[in-house]
């Protein structure tokens, strides 16, 4: 998902508004299951985290009313969505959702986002670097991972994700190398 110049889109307001009222516990459970599947399919990701494989990370999409607390838990990740003021962790990585998703999919360079102030790291900088490097090496594609969990609905799910990507500008899949910046 190439973006013109340095413009990183913000998450659509209706999605942000919906997250103010949606119960977070079921979503947290779903994301925990999802992250465990990713960890199973990408053991190198956990290995590359090294000593930080049990660190409490706070991933803070600044255009959403919630944050994501992630603990890799040695390969059995735990994910919890919470309101921003309740989040606790040793490392916080903040930025627009599009920037965070772009990092996960290797569409963006983390240092470039840091230079442009689109990304802010607070707390344990070593842990943040380890996570960034591990995720960059894993070459994740969240859309494919989600589709593979959907059984007979895999194809419609992928089509739905592609539509959402076009409509929102969020980087929901791993782009071809030619589209990277």
């Amino acid at each position: 998902m190439p973006y013109p110049q340095n413009q990183i889109p913000l998450c659509p307001a209706p999605l942000a508004a919906a997250l103010r009222v949606i119960p977070l516990a079921p979503l947290s459970l779903s994301l925990t299951v999802f992250s465990r599947k990713i960890a199973r399919n990408n053991p190198g990701l956990i290995n590359r985290l090294g000593e930080f494989d049990t660190t409490d990370f706070v991933l803070d999409p600044t255009d959403l009313p919630i944050v994501l607390c992630l603990n890799p838990n040695g390969g059995l990740p735990k994910v919890k969505l919470t309101r921003r003021r309740q989040a606790k962790g040793s490392t916080r990585i903040s930025g627009p959702l599009a920037a965070l998703l772009g990092l996960v999919h290797g569409a963006f360079d983390g240092d470039a986002l840091f230079f442009s102030r689109d990304l802010v790291v607070e707390g344990d900088t070593s842990a943040a670097l380890a996570l960034r490097n591990a995720v960059d090496d894993a070459e994740l594609n969240l859309a494919l991972e989600a589709a593979s969990l959907s059984g007979p609905f895999a194809r419609p799910i992928q089509q739905l994700i592609a539509l959402a990507e076009r409509q929102t500008g969020l980087c929901l899949t791993r782009p071809e190398d030619a589209a990277l910046w």
């Binding site: 360079d109 983390g110 240092d111 960059d136 090496d137």
Partner: peptide, 10 residues
């Protein structure tokens, strides 16, 4: 070498 594959490719 500390940069991402996105940087490297571009």
């Amino acid at each position: 070498r500390q940069r991402s594959k996105s940087y490297v490719a571009q």
